[in-house]
């Protein structure tokens, strides 16, 4: 099947989504994703950051599609023509989506464990507007522990449903989910149950933001001061292929390895993640190749901080102190 994305034609098998086709062409035309995850079935469709314009449905039916579509959930048709970055309309619409994702977001990057590997930071920088027009109090939630290994900062959650799909598809008993509805919807366990299960730790890796974080991440280091290495060990439960984050000789945390699209290559088990924090536990393969397009590596961290300072001023002026709260 032939599909043209931003003027570049590519041949793809039937059943390929627009997003997958765009990724085959390359990162320049691949739409940003916040909820889609190639390793999780039925993921995607929620965040709407990956929307694109279909200017020709197919050769058989050349009409354009009336609305933008979520590229992650729309399969290509033969002869389809798609616009992503070449459509000013899409760029503007995406700016809107980013703004929606941020209006209730605390943007406390300076104290957030995710800073440096946060998809929302990247998204905000690359696709957002410079100023927020939201002047109301932001949603607040208390930070809670889900068991002794995972912390939930609900304020930072963008409801991508990835962690729910992990629990559903990788573990044998889902104990957390999305409760309430609308903008009161939140990730929750049933009566503060612990999420504990051989593969439950993977919810941390799939979370695009700092909503689910590893409580065992030792010494609380900014990610960019740590050195990630690809390493493996013999494991009965999983492939044992992991990414081990060092500071000097110390292992600070263990995560799954991620690919070019920031998606986990192989899910790892909790034992590898939590119980092997000695260098001797691991056979080191070499430094991890991380695509350093993240805002941090490009020194754009200042920019977001600036946005946050502005926001704080605005909120203070309006009499809300909400985002000053310590996590």
């Amino acid at each position: 099947m032939k599909v043209t994305i931003d003027g570049i034609e590519i041949d793809v098998p039937k059943g390929t989504t627009i997003l997958q086709a765009a990724r085959m062409i390359g990162p320049e035309v691949a739409p940003p994703t916040m909820c889609y995850y190639s390793k999780l079935k039925t993921s995607g469709g929620y965040c709407r950051t990956c929307i694109v314009k279909v200017t020709q449905g197919s050769t058989a039916n050349p009409n354009p599609m009336p609305k933008p579509v979520a590229s992650c959930r729309t399969e290509v048709m033969d002869g389809m023509v798609v616009q992503n970055i070449t459509s000013p309309e899409i760029i503007e619409a995406r700016k809107g989506v980013v703004e929606f994702l941020l209006i209730n977001h605390p943007l406390d990057c300076p104290v957030c464990d995710q800073a440096g590997e946060c998809k929302l930071q990247d998204l905000g920088y690359e696709h957002g507007a410079a100023k927020s027009r939201y002047e109301f109090k932001r949603r607040e939630y208390e930070v809670i522990d889900i068991g002794d290994k995972i912390k939930l900062h609900m304020t930072r959650c963008i409801l991508c449903y990835r962690c729910v799909k992990v629990a559903e598809q990788l573990t044998d008993g889902r104990v957390h989910g999305v409760v309430h509805r609308g903008d009161a919807a939140e990730i929750s366990t049933y009566i503060q149950q612990a999420i504990s299960n051989d593969f439950s730790g993977n919810v941390i890796d799939v979370c695009p933001v700092g909503a689910l974080t590893d409580k065992t991440f030792r010494f609380k280091q900014r990610v960019w001061f740590t050195k990630p290495m690809d390493a493996h060990r013999n494991c009965k439960k999983c492939s044992g292929k992991a990414r081990v984050w060092f500071k000097g000789d110390e292992v600070l945390r263990v995560t799954a390895r991620k690919d070019q699209w920031d998606e986990v290559e192989d899910f790892i088990c909790n034992e590898c993640r939590y119980d092997h924090k000695k260098t001797a536990d691991w056979t080191i393969e070499g430094p991890s190749h991380i695509s350093r397009h993240s805002v941090i590596s490009q020194n754009h961290y200042e920019h977001l901080n600036e946005l946050k300072v502005q926001l704080m001023k605005q909120q203070k002026a309006l009499g809300f102190m909400s985002i000053d709260k310590k996590p």
């Binding site: 208390e142 009161a184 366990t189 503060q192």
Partner: peptide, 14 residues
């Protein structure tokens, strides 16, 4: 929307 109490906290583990 005002401050929200986290859903699960409203319940006591009675």
């Amino acid at each position: 929307m005002g401050a929200q109490v986290h859903g699960t906290q409203e319940f006591n583990k009675g």
